[in-house]
């Protein structure tokens, strides 16, 4: 619904002009619905709201969002969503892989991508994807909730550095 709110036109224009645009959680759902990024986020496999820390692997470190990390690096971020399952048509998924548009994948603490490490049933464990341009991205986990030592986690700082 929010994908058709008037403000999205301005977001679209800003993105086209090169402004970094990051959609987190509900913002990720909106980014996909608005067509800024491919795919869709829908009801968790559990059909429940889930709030827990997860591990994600950096799949593409050559973007503003992941420049602070190494490719393959595993970071811990919190999730808090009921509709975070990434879905996309098979041919478009293949296209995503071929063009290196997958930003993060849910994984085990050691980096292995397994079905058990996928908290919500996302296709291919996808936790975050890039738009056509690298400066447009969405992800379901919350990097902004993992930026202060007092909160117990700081792994998300690197993502937000893209705005600095």
């Amino acid at each position: 619904m929010a994908a058709h709110a008037p403000i999205l036109e301005e977001v679209r224009e800003a993105a086209a002009d090169g402004t970094p645009v990051l959609g987190i959680c509900n913002g990720a759902q909106i980014g996909c619905e608005a067509g800024l990024t491919p795919g869709a986020f829908t009801t968790n496999e559990s059909a429940r709201f889930q709030c827990e820390p997860v591990h994600v692997r950096v799949e593409n470190a050559a973007t503003p969002w992941t420049a602070a990390y190494d490719e393959g690096e595993v970071i811990e971020l919190p999730i808090a969503h009921g509709e975070g399952r990434f879905e996309i048509a098979d041919d478009r998924l293949q296209q995503l892989e071929e063009t290196d548009r997958v930003l993060f994948r849910y994984c085990e603490p050691d980096g292995e991508v397994t079905a058990a490490a996928d908290p919500n049933g996302s296709t291919d464990n996808v936790a975050g994807v890039l738009g056509t341009d690298d400066h447009v991205a969405v992800l379901m986990p919350h990097p902004e909730r993992a930026t202060l030592p007092d909160l117990g986690a700081t792994d998300g700082q690197g993502v937000l550095r893209a705005f600095a």
Binding site: T42, E45, S46, A47, R85, E87, G121
Partner: peptide
Amino acid sequence: GVLDPEAET
């Protein structure tokens, strides 16, 4: 082919 968790639940 798209999962329907609400229906399954």
